[in-house]
């Protein structure tokens, strides 16, 4: 076929690729409660994390000679605002350093809701394609309106009446159940008394996973892109801090083929919900294809399912700081 002479760029939009590391390793989340317990408690977290971070690195080195691993850390400024960047961030970096860890990228949790004027969480919400329970033949399920997402069919709100006029409870059903169901119903958002949408922690964490997997785009352009930040010149206000900053000299990119998240085990339900969400997001197809091709070219193809690219280590919450010489 002869090559086309006439083209219209608005008819053929492009999707830009992002640089990709092999692994994005998350060294933790910081919430106000953790911070209030003081730097020593933070140090305990990092000391625990260090052990698992070493294990994760050792595992990566088995697969590829010189793994490109970037580390990241998430600070909550969405659910509770506490302290200021110029106070919190140096403490976090210092305590991580003391444990022998380097944090390469730091993100604000509110950046997963809105980053650089782009309503990221809302875009991802629009991309939810719910897992259809058997019998779905084309009617769109309404869950995108309710703000709840399940892995199956809920119990009927008004159970059918039995012959004796009694109403019988009917159990919910997990669509992909093996013999027995593990049914989950995840709240994605709620609206506060001012009508303002509040995204749930699990939903924002799902957006965070997609960002780390290099799968977020807005009109073909990457979003939540890291910006260089001089740690000596941090602003005194969270709103003036870019949503994602680079705080080390690493050459490894923020986004990666796979993610590994190290968190205390009370995060288990949240991360389980994250997987439920990731399993039902119709990710940008072009971005998906870019990652699949690049990883395959490097001889380490990613699993086709997005949720399978995220792994976790749930470690035991450290207790009180261990005193020197006391074991």
């Amino acid at each position: 076929m002869p090559e086309r002479v006439f083209r219209e760029s608005t008819a053929e939009p492009r999707t830009r690729a992002v640089p990709l590391a092999h692994l994005s390793l998350e060294l933790g989340h910081l919430y106000m409660e953790d911070f209030q317990l003081g730097p020593k408690r933070l140090g305990e977290h990092f000391a625990e994390v260090r052990i698992w971070a070493d294990a994760v690195r050792a595992r990566a080195a088995r697969r590829v000679k010189r793994p490109r691993i970037s580390t990241c850390f998430l600070i909550d400024d969405y659910f509770t605002r506490f302290s200021t960047p110029d106070e919190v961030i140096p403490t976090v970096l210092e305590e991580a350093g003391r444990a022998g860890l380097t944090i390469d990228y730091l993100a604000r949790e509110s950046g997963c809701a809105v980053a650089d004027g782009v309503a990221l969480a809302e875009s991802v919400a629009h991309r939810l394609v719910e897992s259809p329970p058997p019998g779905s033949y084309g009617f769109r399920p309404p869950a995108s309106r309710t703000g709840w997402l399940t892995n199956g069919s809920r119990s009927p709100a008004s159970p059918p009446r039995t012959d004796r006029g009694r109403t019988d409870w009917e159990p919910p059903v997990e669509t992909a159940a093996r013999n027995h169901s593990i049914f989950m119903d995840v709240e994605l958002w709620s609206d506060d008394k001012n009508g303002q949408r509040v995204w749930s922690c699990s939903f924002l964490a799902a957006v965070w996973q997609l960002a780390r997997l290099g799968l977020l785009r807005h009109l073909g352009e990457p979003v939540l892109v890291p910006r260089e930040q001089d740690v000596a010149a941090l602003p005194p206000d969270w709103d003036r801090l870019p949503p994602l900053i680079k705080v080390s000299a690493t050459k490894a990119a923020f986004s990666a083929y796979r993610t590994c998240t190290l968190v205390p085990h009370h995060f288990l339900p949240v991360e389980n919900a994250v997987r439920l969400v990731l399993d039902q997001v119709d990710v940008d197809t072009a971005a998906l294809a870019q990652v699949a091709k690049r990883s395959a070219d490097e001889g380490m193809p990613v699993p086709p399912e997005v949720a399978q690219r995220a792994t976790y280590v749930f470690y035991e919450e450290p207790g009180d700081p261990i005193e020197d010489g006391k074991h």
């Binding site: 219209e8 608005t10 008819a11 719910e130 897992s131 009109l219």
Partner: peptide, 26 residues
């Protein structure tokens, strides 16, 4: 909201939406 609408003006204005998905099991 996060995807382009394809707009073509020649030889006739033709605008194409992004694609959406509906899950089915039936």
């Amino acid at each position: 909201a996060d995807m382009y609408v394809r707009v073509s003006e020649r030889p006739i204005m033709h605008v194409l939406s992004p694609e959406t998905l509906t899950g089915v099991d039936c």
